[in-house]
Amino acid sequence: MTINDLRKGRYSVLEQDYFVTFTTLKRMPVMLNHEVALTICQAIHIETKFTTLAWVVMPDHVHLLLTLKSGTLGEAMQSIKGRSSREVGTIMPNFKWAKGYYEHALRHEECRKQIARYIVANPLRADLVTDIGQYPWWDACYL
């Protein structure tokens, strides 16, 4: 799959909820570094192009459940990835996100709470912790 394949059929709708995943370049687990993970979390919190409903920062990727507030989804992803790259670059100069992202626009019948639970349970499924309370890099408005 190429970056152009990811863009085919992609469009953005304001106030639409999206489940988005983006990864580090070559899936390098750079977010195991506490300072890097904290910086990514802070970038998520200050983003204004979307409202986060749930998110988790994993060692090599980020999951977001968001509501698009302005611009396009592509612009929102460019904003969050660009801001976090600049800020993490001061800690880890070779840090890079992989190109593109994966998204799924939620339909009315889909359960946002179920998707939020899936997102925040990621560290459990990855065996990073045995209790989600032990993992510091997540948040959800539902839980």
Rank of each mutant, 00 (worst) to 15 (best):
S84V: 10
T21V: 14
P29C: 08
K99H: 04
K99W: 01
Y118D: 04
M1L: 11
W55T: 10
K96H: 15
R86F: 07
Y18G: 13
N122K: 01
H34C: 04
N94W: 02
G9N: 10
L66A: 10
R86C: 07
R27C: 12
Q114H: 08
S84R: 04
K69F: 00
G100C: 02
I80T: 11
S85E: 12
L53M: 08
P29S: 06
L25H: 12
T67S: 14
R107C: 10
I46V: 14
D127L: 01
A140I: 01
T72I: 10
T48E: 15
L143N: 03
W55V: 09
V57R: 04
L68I: 08
P123M: 08
V36C: 13
R27L: 12
T2R: 06
K96Q: 15
V30T: 05
A54E: 05
R10G: 11
R117I: 06
H63R: 07
T21W: 01
I44H: 05
I119T: 09
K69G: 02
M1A: 14
E35C: 00
V88W: 01
G9M: 04
S12E: 10
I3E: 06
S79F: 01
T72E: 12
A121G: 07
V20F: 07
C141Q: 12
D5N: 15
F95T: 07
T51P: 00
H61L: 09
E110V: 04
L38G: 10
L53W: 02
L25R: 13
G133L: 07
V120Y: 07
R83H: 11
H61V: 07
A116C: 08
L73Y: 06
I119F: 02
N33W: 00
